[in-house]
Design a protein around this nucleic acid. Structure first.
Length: 106
DNA sequence: AACCTGACTTCGG
DNA sequence: TCCGAAGCCAGGT
């Protein structure tokens, strides 16, 4: 019984993130919308940051609205880029992802 | 209990 | 088209 209670929104967001298929990416706004709270993008970012490890989330498949990696260079930037390239996601110059091509459409 | 921060998005100038 | 500011949510201090 040591389980900590989590909000329905947390659970919904996690569930959505886990559904992102390999080789595709989703934006924070997209996840927030699918989870039922379109304006809670910052919460989604927090969930991802705090629980990606224990929930075993495909965190690297989440990028910002511009199709860029949101991490700074001294954080997981390269790790995320490598993971995505390994799944076949192509980065253009300036490390941008073509969302029209790679964004997950439900 | 109040204030701050964060792996963001959107709108206005 | 680019940049600054506001808005929103949850957890940490």
């Amino acid at each position: 019984m040591g389980q900590k209670e989590r909000s329905p929104y947390y659970l919904a967001a996690i569930k959505v993130i886990k559904k992102i298929p390999k080789g595709k990416v989703a934006t924070y706004g997209q996840i927030a919308r699918l989870a039922g709270r379109p304006q809670a993008v910052r919460a989604v970012a927090w969930f991802l940051h705090s629980s990606s490890k224990k929930e075993k989330l495909p965190w690297h498949r989440v990028v910002n609205a511009k199709g860029e990696i949101s991490l700074s260079l001294d954080q997981g930037y390269f790790t995320q880029k490598q993971l995505l390239e390994k799944e076949g996601v192509h980065f253009s110059l300036y490390d941008k992802i073509d969302l029209k091509k790679y964004q997950w459409s439900k």
